[in-house]
Design a protein around this nucleic acid. Structure first.
Ligand SMILES: [Mn+2]
Ligand SMILES: [Mn+2]
Ligand SMILES: [Zn+2]
Ligand SMILES: [Zn+2]
Lengths: 144, 144
DNA sequence: GCGCACATGACAACGGTTCTCATGTCGTTT
DNA sequence: AAACGACATGAGAACCGTTGTCATGTGCGC
């Protein structure tokens, strides 16, 4: 029923430095959302809930979480970066709904080995890959 | 020797509207470059060559070419969009050097069918994919 | 408790891109 | 050839996501 608990014990805050109320709040909001969120959307959400955390702090916390591997980052068509909490530290890819933002994790082992093969045959070093799938989810399809 | 001819007959200008000197110039510069270029880099290049084309026009022309399928667009890590002329109208993917910007086309048929499979099994409609590979090319590796 | 390295937040600055609008021009019609 | 209208151009401002600045606040090891 409630999709956001008051304050689900945010354990991995300390992965990114000192434990502060602001970081716990941001991490809590990120964990509480099933969808990818932009820094600004998350900030607005906090304001609406009466939680006053500076926008700079939201940006810094999300960026730090992403660098620590606790958040996935994706770029929306407009270039905005969207964040989503990642419970397990593994690398993942998502199929994102362009209408509602819902993200569905997809099995990307095939893409991973494809990229590894390209890396080996090209002579390039430190090859990284970005894979993003977008579409319209069944729910949003139904609602026209 | 010369990597940029004076003005290689730019045929597909008219794919994006009226044929103007500015559009021919922009398209010529795009065709003359083997690498992905940002709108601003291309603009600077034109200025250096004594060709005065407004930055707005460069943006408009590149965007129109991309929409017409005559240019590939890729996002660099900083969020900047990079353009490259696409002689054939097929969909392509590249392995980009993070140092010098060189782009190597890669065989992505595997990724295409993977994406198609995900599309079919997920129930999502209109699934599009973004695949970007980045690394350090052999030349840039050599130069330390 | 002290102290300081680290964190916060209001605000300004930044960089890429798009918008505005007055002026110019392509290309078609008489 | 001249005229006309729709479209294109360009200088500058506006926009928007993001990062920097810096004075103030605070977590936390001592
Ligand atoms: Mn992957
Ligand atoms: Mn493809
Ligand atoms: Zn949806
Ligand atoms: Zn290189």
């Amino acid at each position: 029923m409630r999709e956001d608990q008051a304050a689900p014990p945010p354990a991995d805050v300390e992965l990114i430095g000192r434990r502060t109320p602001q970081r716990s709040t941001v991490l809590g909001a990120l964990i509480g959302s099933a969808e990818f969120l932009s820094a600004q959307a998350l900030h607005l959400r906090l304001l609406a809930a009466g939680e006053h955390v500076g926008l700079s702090t939201v940006y810094r916390t999300l960026t730090a979480l992403a660098e620590a591997g606790r958040a996935d980052v994706v770029r929306d068509p407009g270039g905005e970066r969207l964040f989503r909490y990642r419970p397990s530290p593994q690398h993942r890819h998502y199929l994102l709904c362009r209408v509602c933002g819902t993200g569905l994790p997809v099995d990307s082992s095939l893409v991973g080995s494809w990229a590894a093969g390209i890396s080996a045959s090209s002579g390039f070093a430190d090859v990284q890959h970005t894979v993003e799938l977008t579409g319209t989810c069944p729910d949003c399809l139904r609602e026209q």
